[in-house]
C-alpha cells in the first residue's frame, strides 16, 4: 500500500503551519522528513495517520493493505506512550485485544514480535523497569504486532542517548532487511535520515513546504560509518537546512 499526499495544507488558528505538501510514500520504503523545529513535521504525521484532518488537500491510501493487517497506519511515538500499568506483554496485547483473533493467535503474534525486538526475556517486566532504548523497542514491537502497512515514526530515537540510538538504528535496519516495511520517519537528526531513509524530504521553516526530496539509492544494509557518499548527502541536507533553521530560530514562536 502506498500513501500519496496531495497538496496538503494546514493551519492552527491563524497560523499557517503547512503549505502545499505533495509527496509519495512508496510501499516498502522509508521516507524521512527533516526540517527545522516547528515547521510542522509532527503535524504532517498526525494528518497522515488520521489523528487530525487537513485543512486543505488529501491524504490517499493507494492499494490494499496486507491481508492480515490490523491497523494500516501505525504510530511509533517519541515518548513511547506505553501504559505504565501493563507489562511488556500486556502493552503489546493491548492493541490486539479488540480484534478477536482466533485462540492462540494473539500469543503467537506477541511471542513473534517480542523475539524480533529481542524482548522475549522481558515479557513480564513493567515499563518503569526498562531502559529508554528497551521502552522504544516495546513500542516498536507493539507497532509490528498489528502488521502495519505504514509506520509513522515521530522522532522515535530522540529521547535516547547517542549509543542507544546507534544500537536501535541497527535494530531498525535489521528489522527492515528481514521484512521491508513502509515508514514515514520524522527526525531532527540528519545522520539518522541518511542512515535509514530511502528518500529524504526536506521541509522549509513554517509554513512548511517541501524544499527538496533527496533519493538515497544505497541499500540500507550497506550503509556503514564514514561512508563518503552518505557524508556528502548529509552535508547537502545540512546546507539546505541551515539557513532555514537559523531563520526559524530567530522567529517569535507565535509570530
Amino acid at each position: 500500500m502506498d500513501i500519496r499526499l496531495e497538496a496538503i495544507g494546514h493551519d492552527y488558528g491563524r497560523t499557517e503551519v503547512l503549505r502545499d505538501i505533495t509527496l509519495d510514500i512508496p510501499s516498502g520504503r522509508i521516507v524521512c522528513l527533516v526540517g527545522p523545529s516547528g515547521c510542522g513535521k509532527s503535524t504532517l504525521l498526525r494528518l497522515i495517520g488520521g489523528l487530525e484532518r487537513p485543512a486543505r488537500g488529501r491524504v490517499l491510501m493507494l492499494g490494499e493493505p496486507p491481508a492480515d493487517c490490523l491497523n494500516p497506519l501505525t504510530f511509533v511515538f517519541q515518548d513511547f506512550a506505553l501504559l505504565p500499568w501493563r507489562t511488556v506483554r500486556g502493552n503489546v496485547a493491548l492493541v490486539l485485544e479488540d480484534h478477536r483473533l482466533p485462540p492462540g493467535r494473539m500469543e503467537a503474534v506477541i511471542s513473534d514480535v517480542l523475539a524480533r525486538t529481542r524482548l522475549s526475556d522481558f515479557a513480564g517486566a513493567l515499563p518503569r523497569q526498562l531502559s529508554g532504548g528497551m521502552k522504544q523497542r516495546v513500542a516498536i514491537a507493539r507497532a509490528l504486532a498489528v502488521n502495519p502497512a505504514v509506520m509513522l515514526m515521530d522522532e522515535p530515537l530522540s529521547a535516547l542517548d547517542a549509543q542507544t540510538r546507534e544500537l536501535l538504528m541497527d535494530d531498525l535496519v535489521a528489522l527492515w532487511t528481514r521484512t521491508p516495511f513502509t515508514a514515514v520517519y520524522v527526525t531532527h537528526n540528519l545522520a539518522e535520515a541518511v542512515r535509514l531513509g530511502h528518500r529524504v524530504a526536506v521541509l522549509s521553516r513554517r509554513p512548511g513546504r517541501i524544499r527538496e526530496v533527496v533519493e538515497i539509492d544505497r541499500p540500507l544494509g550497506e550503509r556503514g560509518y564514514a561512508d563518503a557518499d552518505l557524508e556528502r548527502i548529509q552535508k547537502h541536507l545540512w546546507g539546505l537546512m541551515r539557513d532555514e533553521a537559523r531563520a526559524a530560530d530567530e522567529e517569535l514562536v507565535d509570530g
Partner: peptide, 8 residues
C-alpha cells in the same frame, strides 16, 4: 492518542 492511533 496512542489508543486512538491503534484503532481501539
Amino acid at each position: 492518542r496512542m489508543g486512538q492511533s491503534f484503532g481501539l
